[in-house]
Amino acid sequence: MFIAVYEFTIKTDMAREFRDSWLLTTKGIYEEFGSIGSRLHSTKNPLIFIGYAQWPDQETWKKEKDFINPDFILARDRMRGCVESSKTIYELEVTDDYLQTDIFANTGEN
Rank of each mutant, 00 (worst) to 15 (best):
I3P: 06
A4S: 15
A4M: 07
Y6H: 13
E7R: 15
E7L: 07
I10Y: 07
I10R: 03
K11F: 10
T12F: 08
T12K: 03
A15F: 03
R16Y: 05
R16H: 09
R16E: 07
E17L: 00
E17H: 01
R19W: 00
S21C: 01
S21W: 00
L23N: 03
T25G: 09
T26R: 06
T26H: 05
K27L: 01
K27S: 00
K27W: 00
K27I: 02
G28F: 00
Y30V: 08
Y30N: 05
Y30A: 08
Y30H: 06
E31C: 11
E31K: 15
S35Q: 11
I36P: 00
G37D: 11
S38V: 09
R39H: 07
L40W: 02
H41K: 09
K44E: 05
K44Y: 03
N45V: 14
L47W: 09
L47H: 09
F49K: 14
I50D: 12
G51A: 04
Q54I: 03
Q54H: 09
W55R: 07
P56M: 12
P56S: 15
D57T: 12
D57P: 02
T60L: 06
W61L: 11
K62R: 13
E64S: 14
K65G: 01
D66P: 04
F67S: 11
F67K: 13
I68H: 06
I68Q: 10
N69Q: 12
P70C: 07
D71Q: 12
I73H: 04
G81N: 09
C82K: 01
C82G: 00
C82S: 02
C82F: 08
C82R: 02
C82M: 05
T88S: 06
Y90R: 10
Y90L: 11
E91V: 08
V94D: 03
D96L: 15
D97E: 09
D97G: 05
Y98H: 10
L99A: 11
Q100V: 14
Q100R: 13
T101E: 10
T101N: 06
D102S: 15
I103A: 06
A105G: 12
T107E: 15
T107V: 06
T107W: 07
G108H: 14
G108W: 13
E109M: 13
N110A: 02
